[in-house]
Design a protein around this nucleic acid. Structure first.
Lengths: 162, 162
DNA sequence: TTATAAATGGGATAACATAGGATAGAGTGG
DNA sequence: CCACTCTATCCTATGTTATCCCATTTATAA
């Protein structure tokens, strides 16, 4: 499970270290022979990136496999999920090199922040991250009931927030 | 799993490099002795091409075996994918040469874009690709609920809205 | 402090995409 | 039946980019 917030440097070659904790998650749910790296895609919700391990992609694939092959929405999801995703392999030091267009999309410059979201994570500009965090906090304080921490029920979760 | 979007040049001889990532997928799920190349057919849905490895053809065959022999979808499926499909072998540099009629069908000229869709991929004109992607993105944003991205529960996710 | 792991920097190297000539095979016309 | 053309495949070459490898720094823990 991806947890916590880490800021690392993006070097001149476009490389950035993936936090060691995150790497541990990837390699633990990685059956031998699986891709050793992360999958990253531009968020549908705004100018930042989202990512996860290959296992997450398989979950998405399972969901899609259950859709009607001739459903119009199916191809739309296939394009957005698989077509936008990039496979970024770890180098020997646990770094990935971030494609330039993704960096531009997310406004990433010298520093990037990884934010764990459980099944997946976000990659964004540290400044934007701070802003988003404050907004999210404010929202929860206004509306504390939606997330019922500590109780089983939580029928309408929404926890995944994102 | 085929991921991401790559644009490569179609040269004067009708050759185009298949993205290295895609080739890796093919050779990884390729039992030794299998066909080293891609299978390409005109899409059922419009003027572009679809393709995959030989392994995908096997999957389709299994699917078809379980369909009603008189199902209309089945017949269309068989005719396009098996009937119209072409076997394009890699050359030493990982290129295939795209038959002229397929290029015409898909309106391919100097540049072609490969779009990963998980089990298969699309091959189309970069301009058309851009259009389709914008449409897909817009559609998913309007209707993110059909596919429960990011988690099991999330019946009315999107909570984090923003 | 010392030891261990993680993150960072940069030069060397290999992989990739692309171009073009050379060769072999299919099809056509004489 | 042979010569010719056209086309497809093979092979080598080259610029560009990514990745490999090693060295150094920073952080964490004993």
């Amino acid at each position: 499970m991806f947890l916590s917030r880490v800021t690392n440097a993006l070097d001149a070659k476009g490389r950035v270290s993936v936090p060691a904790d995150f790497r541990a998650v990837i390699s633990s749910d990685r059956a031998s022979g699986n891709f050793d790296g992360i999958i990253v895609w531009p968020s549908l919700s705004g100018p930042w990136l989202e990512g996860g391990g290959i296992a997450l992609m398989r979950e998405y694939q399972d969901l899609l496999d259950n859709m009607d092959p001739f459903d119009d929405d199916r191809i739309v999801f296939e394009r957005t999920i698989f077509g936008e995703g990039r496979r970024l392999a770890f180098d020997a030091n646990g770094r990935v090199s971030l494609p330039k267009d993704l960096a531009v999309y997310a406004g990433l410059d010298k520093q990037v922040t990884f934010v764990g979201l459980g099944r997946r994570f976000e990659i964004l500009n540290p400044k934007d991250c701070e802003t988003k965090f404050q907004q999210a906090r404010a929202k929860v304080q206004q509306n504390p009931h939606r997330l019922r921490l500590g109780g089983k029920p939580a029928s309408q979760d929404s926890a995944g927030s994102r």
